[in-house]
C-alpha cells in the first residue's frame, strides 16, 4: 500500500527520536503536469533511507543528495526542477512540469 503523508510524518518523528539524522522535503510549488501535489513530503535519513515522494520518482535522486547536505549543515534549501534547465533534464522530470521543493533538517 502507498504511504500516506500522515505515515510519512509519523515515520519522520520516529526516526528522529531513534537518534537518526533526518531531513524533510516538501513540494512548495508546481507548474504544469507535476506528478505530486503541493504539500507532498519525502522524508530522508542520514543513511539515505527514504519514505514518500515529491515527484513520483523523477527527481528523488537529487533531493536525496541535497537532503544529506541539509542534515550535515542544518541549512534549509529550495530546489527547482523543470524540463527547461539542465539539472532537471538530468534528473528527468520528463512530464513537462516544474516543481519547487523545500528541504529542511528535522532538529
Amino acid at each position: 500500500m502507498l504511504s500516506t503523508d500522515s505515515d510519512i510524518l509519523k515515520a519522520a518523528e520516529g526516526w528522529r527520536r531513534e537518534g537518526r539524522g533526518v531531513a524533510l522535503a516538501t513540494v512548495i510549488e508546481t507548474w504544469g503536469s507535476a506528478p505530486r501535489p503541493v504539500g507532498s513530503h519525502l522524508v530522508i535519513d542520514h543513511d539515505g533511507n527514504f519514505l514518500g515522494s515529491v515527484s513520483g520518482g523523477c527527481v528523488e535522486g537529487d533531493v536525496l543528495t541535497e537532503a544529506a547536505d541539509a542534515i550535515e549543515d542544518g541549512k534549509p534549501r529550495m530546489l527547482e526542477f523543470g524540463v527547461a534547465d539542465e539539472t532537471a533534464w538530468r534528473a528527468g522530470l520528463s512530464c513537462g512540469g516544474r516543481i519547487k521543493v523545500y528541504v529542511e533538517k528535522l532538529g
Binding site: L9, A12, E13, R16, L24, E104, L106, G107
Partner: peptide, 13 residues
Amino acid sequence: MDLSLLSALNAER
C-alpha cells in the same frame, strides 16, 4: 523543523 513542532502536528493529525 523542530522535532517538537512535528510532534505537535502529528498529535493534531
